[in-house]
Amino acid sequence: MSHDDYKEMIPAHALSALETADERMLNDHLVGCAECRRELDEWQSTTAGLAFEATPLEPSAHVRESILAKVREVRAEEATAKVVPFVSPRQNIWNSFGSLGAIAATLVFVALLVYVVLLWKENRALQSQVTTVAAENSKIKKDLELSLAAIKLISSPGSKMAELNATPMAPGATAKIAFDKTGHAMLMAQGLPAAPAGKEYQLWFIVGGEKMPGKTFATDSGGSGMLIDQVPVAAMKSAVFAITMEPKGGVPAPTGQVYLVSSS
């Protein structure tokens, strides 16, 4: 499971709505992922507000007293536990041998315990490495498949390609869109700024004054994104391609700023 898969699960986790197995896997991931822990904190801040939807109710007065009485009990127990009882020294030499044996046994036990903990840590580290390598392998495989698909598309007879140039919203960003004679298109973008939560980039086909919506896509941590879409028939001969930032899932008409646009 990838980092993005875990990130997707976090809102449901904040609602305690994950299945037990998913919850366990996500909790393991959270131990080593500060970004996901921050994300969970933010979602929990939202879900905490839902508590106000419940009717406020006054508990019985004895609850407060009961809590404070138990706290005093806990404090008293802790105070007792801190007192070291006075033990008179043992004179019997056989008892001394017994004590030495107990000490030796304790040392052996502690050494075994340390060894087990070290083995457990090593196992955890190896498992983590295997997961990372598997995720990287999966990404490389996916990238390779996409590259092959892009080459196939570009080399097919009658295919066209257009370059999208950056607007002041995304200095340094670039994108290319290639499509074959059936309209099957592939867009590859680089250098885009990260979209905030709830936003995505959306492709547009502009013919005359008409803006036809394409699909949405997200970018990776390096600002690269990729999209497979279908060029509308009306846009096959002559169209301007543009990329805007829109609410996640896309919109039927552009509402956000243009980040990349092709020349007409």
């Binding site: 508590a51 419940a54 009717t55 406020p56 006054e58």
Partner: peptide, 9 residues
Amino acid sequence: RVILFGLLV
């Protein structure tokens, strides 16, 4: 107490 008790009820 009031908000948490309401939530728990």
